[in-house]
Simulated assay, not measured.
Amino acid sequence: MTRTGGVAGRARWTVAVTVLTVALWPGTAVAGRSSPDPVPVCQIRDPRLTEISGMVATDAGFVVVNDSADEASRRRIFFLDGDCAVVRTVPYPSRPRDTEDLAVGVDGTLWVADIGDNDRSRDTVALWKLAPGAGRPVLHRMAYPDGPHDAEALLLDGAGRPVVVTKQGGAAGLYTPTAPLRPGTTTPLARVGQVRLPATTTANPFAFVGRRLVTGGATAPDGRRVVLRTYADAFEFDVPDGDVVAALTGGTPRVVPLPDEPQGESVAYRRDGRALFTVSETADQPPGSRPTILRYALPAPAPAASGTRAPAGTAGPTGGDPTPSAVPAAGTPGGSGGVRSLLLGVGVIVAGLLVVSLTGAGRARRTGR
Rank of each mutant, 00 (worst) to 15 (best):
G6P: 13
R3D: 08
G32A: 00
A134H: 12
S121C: 10
L155D: 10
V30N: 04
L154A: 09
R366Y: 06
R76T: 11
G173Q: 00
A103Y: 04
Y144I: 03
R161E: 15
T323H: 14
G32H: 00
T278M: 02
P328Q: 11
D150A: 01
G352H: 05
A275F: 07
T323D: 15
I77E: 14
V64G: 00
Y269S: 08
V239E: 09
A234I: 00
D98E: 04
T166Y: 01
R211T: 02
L298P: 01
P198Y: 10
A275N: 03
A302V: 08
D284F: 12
P183Y: 11
V244G: 07
G347C: 07
V56A: 06
R97I: 10
T124G: 07
R309M: 08
V22T: 13
R365G: 14
V245P: 03
L49Q: 06
D233A: 05
V226S: 08
L24V: 03
I349C: 10
L258A: 01
R365K: 13
G133Q: 00
V327R: 09
E100V: 00
T14G: 15
R12E: 14
D83W: 03
G368W: 07
V356H: 02
Y269H: 12
L102I: 05
A31I: 00
S280R: 09
D81N: 12
A16W: 05
A16R: 03
A159F: 12
V104S: 04
A364I: 10
A315S: 15
G216S: 08
T308I: 14
E71Y: 10
V227W: 02
L358E: 10
A312C: 10
A57E: 13
D107T: 06
V86R: 10
S68Y: 04
D243E: 08
R95K: 15
D83L: 03
T252G: 04
A151V: 05
G352L: 06
A179D: 01
R74E: 13
P137E: 11
A72Q: 12
T215Q: 09
S73N: 07
P180V: 09
G54Y: 02
P205I: 01
Y144H: 14
T187V: 13
Y231W: 05
R366F: 04
D37Q: 11
A268T: 01
F277L: 15
G217D: 10
E71M: 09
P40G: 02
T176E: 12
A326L: 15
A326M: 14
G273K: 08
A72C: 09
A275Y: 00
A103S: 14
G320H: 08
A85L: 12
P93Y: 14
T367W: 11
G5F: 13
R161I: 05
I44L: 02
T2K: 08
L181C: 03
